[in-house]
Simulated scan of single mutants.
Amino acid sequence: MGFSADVHAARLDRARHLAADAGLDAVVVGAGPDLDYLVGVEGDTIERLTALVMPATGPATIVVPRMELAKVRDTAIASLDVRQADWVDGDDPYALVADAIPAGARRIAVSDALPALHTVPIGERLDVRLELATPVLREGRMIKDAAEIAELRRAGEAIDAVHRQVPQLLHAGRTEREVADDIAAAIMASGHRTVEFVIVGSGPNGADPHHEVSDRVIGDGEIVVVDIGGAVPSGYNSDSTRTYVVGSPDPSAAERIDVLVRAQQAAVDAVRPGATAEEVDAAARGVLAEAGLADAFLHRTGHGIGLSVHEEPYIARGNQIVLREGMAFSIEPGIYFPGEWGARIEDIVVVTADGAERLNVTPRSLTSAG
């Protein structure tokens, strides 16, 4: 599913204005989420250059290998004021980039997804010191429009449907990998087009926030962290974590997870236009600190989400970015006890005019499975 040409035209126009306001003469956007956001062209960076050259004024140009031209023409590009400059092996695509940039341009920025393989030749061809376009491109993607929020809601509903199945999949005697394989199948069956990640962290593995899956056999009474997500057909991502127990939990573990649930709620309650990312992080951290669990919280409270699973804004200590309506990000505090167990609760929220809308609605308390 793609967005209409009108949506992409508005995004391009906004990006041009942001570039001009930043004093940039042109922006070069490589293959990746930024290119998908601006003109609907999907794909990852490869050795053959695909790039959108966007002057601060005037029409943009997409430089694309001829073998990819048909795919590009089957996107919003066909209805946008974007010129097409194709090339074949043996041609110099960097000359096409230079031709698309106004004469005399000196401040040229590139997207952060454009690798050195292409950035260095572009800089040499233009004889300028390239800048990062991140401040310009980030600004557009951070504020989701109504169509993007609808897709994030769709993704949230789909991943919630998967979490509702987890208690039937999670049993003592199964391995983390066996459970993860079933969850991956459920993610695809729920309407996702890709499985981006499946984390099943049982017992002591749950105490590692970066654990994915292993062949460890899940035991009775163990706490299990299940963090899952994928992209729906539009490319927008889901990401939700719930913590389960196989059978009955240790009472002290259940009490600490209750505190974690309260910490996650406090962070959600702190979300509103005008608040800072740091203040939201502090809300979760404060509840945990009051319960003596501050040292068990090892990471930031959240990350932005959209065409990338992780994007700005980041909900972390020291980040004083001011929240605005339309921003979308995770709220996911966790507590981790090495060698024992861990827990994390994660929802995606969207900043509304007066607070936050949760996009995940499955129960956040410790959920029995098996």
Rank of each mutant, 00 (worst) to 15 (best):
E212V: 15
L293G: 05
V28P: 00
A184I: 05
T362V: 15
I187C: 03
L169H: 04
V261M: 10
R11D: 02
D295L: 14
I345P: 11
N319M: 10
L359T: 11
I108V: 03
L69T: 07
Q165P: 06
T50P: 00
S234N: 03
P55R: 02
T57F: 10
L18I: 13
R317Y: 15
M188Y: 07
H211T: 07
R256C: 09
E68V: 05
I305D: 06
P167L: 04
A254E: 11
I228T: 06
D239F: 13
R285I: 10
A20D: 14
P363K: 05
I321H: 12
G318F: 09
T175P: 04
E332G: 14
G173Q: 09
G302W: 08
T45H: 05
V287L: 08
R242W: 04
R358H: 11
G230Y: 00
P115C: 03
G292Y: 09
P233E: 01
E255Q: 13
A263M: 12
Q264R: 14
Q165W: 13
G43H: 03
D99R: 02
R11T: 07
A95M: 05
V351E: 07
E212P: 12
G30F: 01
P249T: 06
A133L: 01
E279L: 14
F3R: 12
V27I: 13
A291L: 07
L137T: 07
D269Q: 14
A22H: 09
L130G: 00
I62N: 02
A180P: 04
A294D: 13
A10Q: 12
P55C: 04
A316I: 14
A150R: 13
V261D: 08
A277P: 11
N319V: 12
A95C: 06
D6S: 11
N360Y: 04
E290L: 10
I199S: 05
V268C: 10
V64D: 04
A105G: 04
G306N: 07
D99Y: 01
A184L: 05
P204K: 03
D34I: 11
E212A: 09
H192C: 05
D295Y: 12
V63T: 01
H210Y: 15
G173K: 05
A100I: 00
A31N: 01
A51E: 03
L293Q: 07
S4F: 10
Y314V: 15
A316T: 15
V287S: 04
R174T: 08
T352G: 07
L12G: 02
R125C: 00
A113D: 14
E42I: 09
G43A: 02
E325T: 15
A172H: 07
E157V: 15
R216T: 15
V361I: 14
L69N: 04
D181K: 13
V82T: 00
V350E: 15
R106F: 04
V29S: 01
A10R: 15
L298W: 10
V246Q: 01
R364T: 15
D182K: 09
M327Q: 12
E290T: 10
H118D: 00
A20C: 10
H8Q: 03
G219T: 13
A266Y: 08
M327L: 09
A105K: 03
R177C: 04
A146V: 11
E357H: 13
G230T: 09
G355M: 12
E151C: 09
G370Y: 06
D81A: 08
I62Q: 01
D13M: 11
I149E: 15
